[in-house]
Nucleic acid binder design. Sequence first.
DNA 1: TTAAAATGATAGGATACCCTTATATTATCA
DNA 2: TGATAATATAAGGGTATCCTATCATTTTAA
Lengths: 220, 220
Amino acid sequence: MRTQTNSSENVEMYLKTVAELGGCAAPVSIAKVADRLEVTAVSANEMMKRLTDQGYISRIPYKGVELTDIGQVAAYSVIRRQRLWERFIVDNLNMSWSGAYEVSCRLEHATSNVLAEALSLYLGQPTTCPHGHPIPTLAGGLAPLQGRPLSALKKGENGRIEAILHTTTAIFAYFAERNIYPQQEIAVQEIAPLDGPFTIVVEGKTTVLGQSLADLVIII
Amino acid sequence: MRTQTNSSENVEMYLKTVAELGGCAAPVSIAKVADRLEVTAVSANEMMKRLTDQGYISRIPYKGVELTDIGQVAAYSVIRRQRLWERFIVDNLNMSWSGAYEVSCRLEHATSNVLAEALSLYLGQPTTCPHGHPIPTLAGGLAPLQGRPLSALKKGENGRIEAILHTTTAIFAYFAERNIYPQQEIAVQEIAPLDGPFTIVVEGKTTVLGQSLADLVIII
DNA sequence: TTAAAATGATAGGATACCCTTATATTATCA
DNA sequence: TGATAATATAAGGGTATCCTATCATTTTAA
């Protein structure tokens, strides 16, 4: 009955998550992966064992997991498919920018490489997703994200939003309501002491962002 | 981890198949469903038991299964999602007409109703899929397919192809190579005795189709 | 350096699918 | 009507994924 040509949906979700958490460069804690996927640490550990057996990741006990070469290829393929769908959902279907990640997250697993390439062509071979992240190339390359978090800016500095890091639909919506999304010009008006809230201005709108939200906004 | 709002992929496949085999109007043999889904009769029986418990179908032992009202709503929803994707795949992505069913069959399960409606709007609210079948409406209606099979035509008759009934990608491709797809004008040149092969002409191309292939082509 | 926190491993279950083999029941047709 | 074909059920397994609970090990931080 299955016509599955890629790995299973679950395997893809784990690989993508490891990649998103930086598992191409440095070990990622299994607990973080579990957290993000909303499963228990035990479940994540079991899966990591399976993924290790299948050669997708290498584990360094008590340190975390890293993607192997084939793991990275698989993960980038998933990310490419997702980000292409995000573009379509936002640019063509005019669906909400905040919900695009969630919607595309279902489609990505149902997308063959042939379909992904047809979609890419249709979209004009975009290079970034609506949240500002680079789309991995067909060849498997992924341009690093430029810029630094808003939380690293000083009072009076300004810049352009390059990307919004991965978060929940609710928080994406919170950003969207305040005009905080890629390509917007932003200025830091005030920073409370002790990394306290950042008062910023975007399109004339003043917003106060806490430290953890400010970490999610990448400025260039 | 699951963000599943619809029924599971498998449940959707079973419901869709029952509907495609006519389960909205008359009992459909479980063996036929099993055959189409390429599972054993035992597996299909087990699933039918589950679907009955969940209120999607009613079974008449040794006769077959029929969709209940909620089963029909669910099935038509799946079919709508699939046919909308088929349109996109063929019309926008320029992917092959023959493979569209298979490709869309994966996407349909990853598509929420909200996404389906955005897609429908984007496509200009199409009413038929590329194989000529009506797309169920949002309200759950499904216009019956008009016409009669090519196999019912007499020598010398002609008509327009309305639809191609469900078949494999390979057979869809066989039809496509011979210009046999919806909206084409067709003329029956010769019918061999005993329901024997049908010699037809489409766009100046002469083709000989056996009885079972001729059954799949709906003429109006 | 030791206690707390984080991490990993093991055992025991659950569910939703799938399978084969065997047996029982019903339908159909000669 | 009786044999064959179709259908249904039962028994026994398999896999992938999830869970809780417990215990063991390692890291980290006071």
